[in-house]
Design a protein around this nucleic acid. Sequence first.
DNA 1: GGATCGGTTGTCTAA
DNA 2: GTTAGACAACCGATC
Length: 541
Amino acid sequence: MESQRRTLVHWFRKGLRVHDNPALERVFSTARASPEKFYVRPIFILDPGILDWMQIGANRWRFLQQTLADLDKQLRQLKSRLYVVRGKPIEVFPQLFKRWQVELLTFESDIETYAQQRDASVQKLARTADVKVDIHCSHTIYNPEVVIAKNLGKAPITYQKFLSIVDQLKIPAVLERPKVLTMNMKPPADELELEDANVYDCPTLEELVKRPEELGVNKFAGETEALRRMADSLGDELWVANFEKPKTAPNSLEPSTTVLSPYLKFGCLSSRVLHKRLREILARQPKHSKPPVSLIGQLMWREFYYTVAAADPNFDRMLGNAYSLQIPWQEKPEHLEAWTHGRTGYPFIDAIMRQLRQEGWIHHLARHAVACFLTRGDLWISWEEGQRVFEQLLLDQDWALNAGNWMWLSASAFFHQYFRVYSPVAFGKKTDPSGDYIRKYVPELAKYPSGCIYEPWKATLSAQREYGCVLGEDYPHRIVNHDVVHKENIKRMSAAYKVNRQVRTGKMEDEEDEQEQISTGKRKARAVGTSAKSKRIKNVA
DNA sequence: GGATCGGTTGTCTAA
DNA sequence: GTTAGACAACCGATC
């Protein structure tokens, strides 16, 4: 009896792939076991409201659009298809549950705060509708909850500690590509009508990209391209074995790294599969680099940030965030604006910010340079502001990684050597002394010679005229003097750390001064209240 | 509980 | 061109 067939729904959110997708496989295998009982409907929910409120730039919308189109193609090869449902999840699901007679809903777990809330609501709706729910962890190699449990309920807050925990965990087996669905999947007539009317079709570029003038270079997206790019990157096994992140250039004209991050972010590429391939290669290469600098080390950084982020719903803000130091950043809209649009007057910084806006990807160390510049290095503007800009522009924007790295670079959490400040002049010169990267992305400086392209203010006015770019007219004067402000900011960081120490230990300033006076040696009174510290961690977990 | 060590990827100068 | 040490001194983990 056709009408009594029930539906198995896999809900795609991240994890936009068919390979190594346990929640999708659950639906496929259930249907294969009882083909007469079930329809399979893989869905993606597109909330038109998101187009307005989400900080997503045109390049990332295009990446999503192309990824969905590719996913639909992959599913059709498996004799299924992608159903793109327009609406809000909490409004869409009750209707779908009823109309499709849904038996089972599967999806991949997601630690992001808004996702957790959304998924809890959907699970409640499913319970009400008597729909079974099956959730799988497959976005990361290790389940953040399991790592936290293994570390006695607390997220490990150093990378080395994190590694020591996951070393004790079993690495889950990856899945083969699902087998083709062979049963007749033709839905009832009224549903067929909807399908014929293209109600569930993938979005077009026009539907998603509201400001096409913002589109830059097309970095092709989707699972097919992800797998091709992975194969390409891993083809040179010696390169893989010797990879050391700090030795790669942030300012090469072609990326010096794999650029797999956007595919990992959307889940077009399974991090578990990449991990497995890397381990296979290293097994064949007796001499190889190791975490934190190796390629596996890069994956482990992703795991680390997912784990710490999973333990704090306020991970993406300073206030109420148990990891983050509370620092009195300043509001300076004109400086923020200059940084955001690559008009700081520091060519290296501006080149990076312009590449970001055009291409949606910049090298990790380039992110370091501009993040340090915005926060503790030069502008003393909150990391949350930088996070917002990255969130909009990065193809690989990822809640946990973005927030975690911003805290790292601003020395708000995880990293504390705030006296190590990136120079907006010297850092880039190491890997690109001639300044070709700057000439590409800041073309107004193209005629500046290598000797002063990193510091155009050192050129005399007549030289500036000769190079066809006069400061203050064709390219901005530098908005701050790095040599001066970075030293002031180190002092500000020192003061901010001191205040945070006092708050943490419950010790007032005068008390500490008193203790300092009492102390006979040179050593400063360093308050290390273990009870207060453990309280801080408890708040996190 | 105090001392020591290590921490993905700093810069600058001097030798 | 490379490397060591100064800079001024942070944190978390460990013993």
